[in-house]
Design a protein around this nucleic acid. Structure first.
Length: 222
DNA sequence: GCAAAGATTTGCT
DNA sequence: GCAAATCTTTGCC
């Protein structure tokens, strides 16, 4: 029937390429989580690129450590970390082996399994999504993406390009690529210039699922 | 071995 | 608008 478009595995060669190209290709792609309560699927609408050891905002800035080792490995793997002691963040490893880089998935527009996403957010954060929160904003932030899709650090190393993986990426081949806007990255002022100004946050301006308060949806100056 | 800060979200003053 | 919640990772003594 005329519901969801047919989905194809996400090509690893795209993720093996330049991180900004990979980030662009991830916008509009689907994030899929298979679980006992059915599949959860959403459309990626906001990402950030973290590129190389020189990037002072990247977890790779200290060189290879136990935490960030997966960033130095195969493209297409998941890198999940815990931030502020409470929120998990999902990254897609990019670039060839030996070059540490990743794309942070900052916001996803829920499409399928919305009830499961809402349940997961309640059980994870032990707080109900705000009553004002529409379904469209269940995954409107990096920590909320992880909560809605039940992702924690145990997912680090999972191959997101493997069609058999319970957590994976997919493309909708028939769809046109969405219009994209680029802004500086969020929450990385500590990196200093020029890194804090690099326009490496990519988003789909038309989406109602973007992270943060509505007023900071697009590149309004801080 | 200890102290500091963090790729966030939420709720209250 | 600002601070709390909460714990892992990293740097330094």
């Amino acid at each position: 029937v005329t519901g969801a478009p047919p989905l194809a595995p996400f090509p690893r060669e795209i993720l093996a390429g330049p991180t900004l190209s990979a980030a662009r290709a991830l916008l509009g792609a689907r994030l899929i989580r298979e679980g006992s309560d059915g599949p959860r699927v959403g459309r990626i609408v906001e990402v950030e690129a973290y590129i190389g050891e020189d990037d002072a905002a990247s977890h790779a800035r200290f060189g290879r450590t136990a935490r960030n080792a997966v960033m130095f490995g195969d493209p297409g793997r998941a890198y999940v970390y815990l931030v502020y002691g409470m929120h998990h963040c999902l990254n897609v490893v990019t670039e060839p082996v030996g070059r540490p880089a990743a794309v942070l998935i900052r916001a996803v527009e829920p499409e399928t399994g919305i009830a499961a996403m809402r349940d997961a957010r309640v059980s994870r954060t032990r707080t109900r999504p705000p009553a004002t929160s529409r379904d469209a904003r269940l995954a409107a932030g990096p920590g909320l993406v992880a909560a809605a899709f039940s992702i924690d650090r145990s997912a680090t190393g999972v191959d997101l390009c493997d069609p058999a993986s319970p957590l994976r990426l997919a493309l909708a081949p028939g769809e046109d690529p969405p219009p994209v806007e680029m802004t500086p990255r969020i929450g990385i002022a500590y990196a200093g210039e020029p890194w804090s100004s690099r326009p490496w946050r990519l988003l789909v301006p038309a989406s109602p699922a973007l992270s943060g308060p509505v007023r900071m949806r697009t590149g309004s100056p801080a």
